[in-house]
Each structure stands twice: as C-alpha cells, then as structure tokens.
Nucleic acid binder design. Structure first.
Lengths: 242, 242
DNA sequence: TGTACATCAGTGAACGCGCGTTCACTGATGTAC
DNA sequence: TGTACATCAGTGAACGCGCGTTCACTGATGTAC
C-alpha cells in the first residue's frame, strides 16, 4: 500500500484531522486503525464501527486510538476521505485520454459505466457510509461534489478530444448534470443492493449501456450512437439524423 | 388533516406496525406523535428524534408512546411510510393525464421537475431521513422503489398518450431509468442543500430544464424539443431530425 | 559503549452520559344490570 | 338513572445497556554526555 501511486495522498490528506505520528510504530497503528474501520464498514456497516470494535480488530487499544484521533468522527472522516482520494485518483487514471485513443465514444462510456457499477458493488459499504454520513457532515458532502466535478471535467475533456460534434448549448453543464445523475443513481444502487430488495430488475450490463446512451443522447454527441456494436437492438435503431 | 384525500392512507397503511387505537383520544395521540416526529426530522434531523423529545413535543408521555409503537423504529417507519404515501398520492395526482391535455411535453416535464425540486426543498429533512434510514431498513428501500416504479408507469402512460413518436428500443425501461436517475439526483440535492455546501452552482430552474431535456432526448421523444419556449438558447438549437 | 532521562506509544479499567425501554400506578371511557 | 366493574389510555420515575471518552500507568524508543 505504501508503494501504490495514491500513497502520497494517504500521507498528506488524512492527516488534517490526525495527530501526525512521530515514529513508524504509530504510523502503522494508524494505518491498522483506518483499515479496521473500513473493514467493519464494508462487512457490517457504519453502526458496527464502535471505538472498541475498531481497536480490537486493529489489535490496538482504546487509549492509542485517542492518541491519534480527536474523536470517533475524525476516524470516520479519515476513512471516507481516504476512500474519496482513491476514487479521485482512480477516476483520473481511468479517464486519461491516452487510454481511450481509437475507442469509439460509446464503447468507452459503456466500459466506464460498467467499471463504476463494479466499484460500487465491491465497495457498497463505503459508498453507503459516505452517503449516510454526508447527511450530518457538510465536509463529506463537499467530498462527493469534488468527485463529481473532477469526473465531469475529465469526461468533458475526453469527449471534446475525440472529434465528435456536440449538440448542446452548454456541453460542460450538461456533462456535469449527467455525471451528477449517474453518481447519484450509483448511490441508490448501492442502497438497493445492500437492502437486497428486488432492486432493479435490470442487470449491471444493461444499466451501463443505458447510462452511456443517456450521456450520448442528452449531451448530444453526434454520430456516436451507431457504434453500439453489442447492444441487442430489438427494434432497429434508427437515429433521426443519420 | 382528517379531511384530506390521503387520510384514508393514514388509517390503513401506517397501522401495520402500530397497535390500532380503540378510542378517538388515542387516535389523536398517535397523530400527534407522528407529527411531532416529522417536525423534529424536518427541523433538526433524524438524530433529534429521541423518544422523550417526540413525546415532549407531542404533549404526551413515554408510556403512551410505547402503548402505540413497538419501538422507536416503528415510529420512524410510520413517519416515512406516511410520507411516501403522500408522495405516491401526489405523484398520481400530478401525473394525471387530463391535467396536461394540450400542454407540450417539454413544458409539462419542466413543470414536473420544478415541482419535484420544490418538494425536495421543502421537505429536505424527510427526504434525507428516508435516504439515511434506507441504509438500515430494507423495507424502506422498497418504499423508494415503489415510488420510482409508480412515477415511471404514470409518466410512461402520459408520454404514450400525447402522440409523439418515441425513439428507443424499450421506452418503458428508458423511462424507468430516467426516473431513477432523477429521483436519485433529487436526493443528492437534498443532501447538498442540507450541508449548505456550494451545492450545484445551478439554480433549480436550470436543473428542471436540463432534466426535462435529458428525458426528452434520452427517451427519444421526437419533435418535443422545439417546444422549448423559455430556454435561453445561446447557440441556436438545431435538432438533428427537424 | 553505557547510563540517565525525556518523550513517544500503548494499555485497559473506570466513568458517565444519553437514550431506549419497563413498570407500577392514576385517570378516563365505556358497559352491564 | 345510578352504581360497580372492566378495559383503555396516559404518566413519568427508574433501570440498565452501550458506547464514547478519560486517565493513571507501563513499556518502548530515542537522545545527551
């Protein structure tokens, strides 16, 4: 973990709410506490995150916990901020233009949506925790918005670069809106899956394709729709302008 | 409140988790408890909903609370179910086809989106509570889905009735997806507003218009877009097919 | 290199607050004769 | 109509659990001379 590209984030960002450790020993304790908390969130939800549960799982003690964190809230913020940082870094990596050279916009979008759905699936717990905690803590709300903005900016650049005409008064706003709606829907999806209610009868693949289609049509990326190679078109698709 | 159309709901639905009162006196106590809880949620959020706070506000007592509700959860579920029932009823009323006869689809959609944004604004607290509580309680998640489905069904009927051709393989799914994304975004919006973070720099009106545009384009309601009388079109809008 | 001291890190029992829930009791409403 | 009784409704002090937080203490690491 200390060799991953996002390691610098873990040292710089989370330490705002944390007493910076002076020895390597406590550095590790801190990491173990964060991991323990995240593990509990993923496995059993936010309610399972009690100080004693976290310290027990981390093989630490209550006292050493309070040597690092001002209170329990600080821990949770730390975990969620670390998560958003990872998400931010991942988003930048995934949306890097060179990665998608020569790939039709539609396929690229579907791939991205699929990836996002997969992440949400794997890290449901954390996504939900971020959602739930945002209701109390405006600083966390801001994190979500930052993620939204960054994805939107990157996506905008990416679409602009691939040479399609865009049919929208304000492409930037449109993309921001689209990303907003999609991210929101992803959160709802995490909720539905956690509640193992029937959720959507739609599978992740169909959702990914529909989301991609939504972006293309709403933002008005002209000529991008016909590249839908793997969409099982029941009625023949016939775009108005082609 | 006992004369509103939704009063029947209040008698039938919420009582699943509640001991049915035998006298009018306790009937009123029950209503006061529900109102008190909702009031607390709206004004101070879910955390402020403690049994003693609720009973105090309702001018009641802890004991009489437990005579009606199995536990605190039951109360909260009741409040949120009552809210969804109202939302469901409102949605049916708002989406009634006769209301929109002769109104261009675009204008109708914008009006609806505006209305929804307004509701979310007024009842932020309850919307948020529903969101947060759904993470714990699958039964509440199901409520949200029911709302989604019903709106989608009505909207589908409404769009089908107004004689536009629809350019989508599966209009029903598309509309369901659109409603899903929009409702999810509304929840995020409630979050953002509550956190009074900069939220979106977009005002509610622009959001309403963009959402309407999204529906029209994504679902492919042909010929509906040019009815955009009050959209400040900076670059001249030119739909591909007209 | 060794000793003394200071600081850092870790420990876990103990405290106390807040809140959900219970329960023994009083008062109100309805019913039987 | 009046009295006796049963049931329903309401009361709030008391209980107890769980959890966050504190604190007096032990052990480990680093530093000065």
């Amino acid at each position: 973990m200390s060799t991953t590209p996002s390691a610098s984030n873990q040292q710089a960002r989370p330490l705002e709410w944390v007493k910076p450790p002076q020895q390597q020993r406590s550095q590790k304790t801190l990491a173990r506490l964060l991991d323990a908390a995240e593990g509990l969130i993923v496995e059993s939800g936010l309610d399972a995150v009690t100080v004693s549960a976290v310290t027990k799982r981390a093989g630490s003690s209550v006292g050493s916990f309070y040597a690092r964190f001002a209170d329990k809230e600080a821990l949770i913020r730390c975990v969620l901020e670390r998560f958003t940082d990872q998400a931010l870094a991942t988003a930048s990596a995934v949306l890097e233009p060179t990665r998608w050279e020569g790939v039709p916009v539609h396929d690229a979008l579907v791939a991205m949506m699929r990836f996002m759905l997969q992440v949400v699936d794997e890290r449901q717990g954390v996504v939900l925790a971020l959602l739930v905690r945002s209701a109390r803590d405006p600083e966390l709300t801001a994190l979500g918005q930052r993620l939204n903005d960054q994805i939107a900016v990157h996506l905008h650049g990416l679409i602009a670069q691939c040479g399609h005409a865009v049919d929208h008064d304000d492409a930037e706003t449109a993309i921001r809106m689209a990303v907003w709606m999609i991210l929101s829907a992803m959160q709802t999806r995490a909720l539905d899956k956690a509640g193992q209610a029937g959720a959507f009868e739609l599978d992740d693949d169909s959702i990914a394709q529909q989301m991609a289609l939504m972006i293309i049509r709403y933002v008005g990326i002209e000529g991008a729709e016909q590249a839908m190679e793997n969409v099982p078109a029941s009625g023949a698709r016939r775009a108005a302008g082609d």
